[in-house]
Design a protein around this nucleic acid. Structure first.
Lengths: 197, 197
DNA sequence: TTACACATACCGACTGGTTAGTCTGGCGCT
DNA sequence: AGCGCCAGACTAACCAGTCGGTATGTGTAA
């Protein structure tokens, strides 16, 4: 048996990633030392630098995970066989739910982009752009069909909605009065109501 | 003549604050060394620690400035002698314009809260809360009057809008196609349209 | 009007502490 | 007997904040 699971059942790389995610979200990237991460994961630096090239790499992995997940989900909803209004609504609500369910990832995502190395930053931006454009395409589709108002450029509409998603990690508290689904429904409502012709 | 203006016309404390603001926005708080700040301001550490108690203090000053400005402007718009819909619209658009005009402050504001010392953080949160509540009161007033939809709780509406304001520093580029005022009009439109009963 | 005291504004070398990343070596499996 | 996996001491760099010192101005009293 390889050492990858000693003591605990989960493999070392995943334990490191989980520890890093939590600590980055709690204290921020710069405030979290590599030493803290390896201690939280129950290993030493040797292990970390065996699996990851750098501290920066660890952060990049968090981003890659989030991006992959969100893009997959968006594609599913956007490609469904439904009227465009429903597809947009579902996608808009879903991103809220999954963001709340991974609030740690979200706060890292929006607060720590500039800590990535320039090339990784560029890569992440490119993927984010793809995501944004898929979403924008939905809005434009509805506008062409005449079911959405064309008063506001689709780009701005998308940024408006993602602003609120971005903002969730600032104010949402799991012990608050609203469930993730309720918040999602409200925010999707606001979006769709703003788009009424 | 005191040395406070040697070489340049602006006093040293303001030069330090301006340099710190720019650098914090560009590189983040932790990534900016005190040495960099004093070099950018054309002074040395002695000067900085003469006027400010700590690096943290410098950050706090940025926050204080932004909070004071925004609260003043909100109060002006909210207390105007106009129908509630117009007051909300004006306030919502104004915060967008002033945020864009001070994008550096804005990106620091939303990205670096957790770098403040716990007590200063608490203070800033308290002031932000006051701001939020003044804004929420406007929404509630309109809802009671029946000119705004009551489907979404006022708190959520406010967070929805401020999400988009928060988000501005991520996507807005001064060399883009839209002027600050145009963006503000669009975002205020979206808010008001979402609130139509 | 001169002389001395004192404060304000600033300089820059220094300190104590922290950090990311490296490297050598060893354990256990195949 | 080699290789993946990992320990942990080590290094080179960096950083916030301190502190003794200097220069310029301001008040005061002889």
């Amino acid at each position: 048996m390889p050492r990858t699971t000693d003591g605990d059942g989960t493999p070392v790389p995943q334990r490191l990633l989980a520890a890093a995610t939590r600590l980055f979200a709690e204290q921020g990237y710069d405030r979290t030392s590599v030493q803290e991460i390896v201690e939280a994961a129950g290993v030493t630096k040797g292990a970390l630098y065996h699996y990851f090239g750098s501290k920066d790499d660890l952060l990049h992995e968090v981003y890659a995970r989030v991006l992959r997940l969100q893009q997959e989900r968006l594609d599913t909803f956007a490609d469904a066989d439904e009227p465009v209004a429903k597809r947009l609504r579902d996608a808009a609500a879903d991103v809220v739910v999954t963001t709340i369910e991974n609030l740690d990832d979200a706060s890292i995502f929006f607060r720590s982009m500039h800590h990535l190395s320039p090339e990784k930053n560029k890569q992440v931006r490119a993927e984010r752009r793809r995501y944004h454009e898929r979403f924008r395409a939905l809005v434009e589709e509805g506008q062409k069909e005449g079911v959405f108002s064309t008063e506001t450029p689709a780009d701005l509409v998308v940024d408006y909605h993602f602003g609120s998603v971005h903002h969730l990690s600032t104010w949402y508290r799991p012990d608050g009065p609203l469930t993730p689904q309720q918040v999602a429904d409200h925010l999707a409502d606001l979006l769709l109501r703003a788009l009424r012709p």
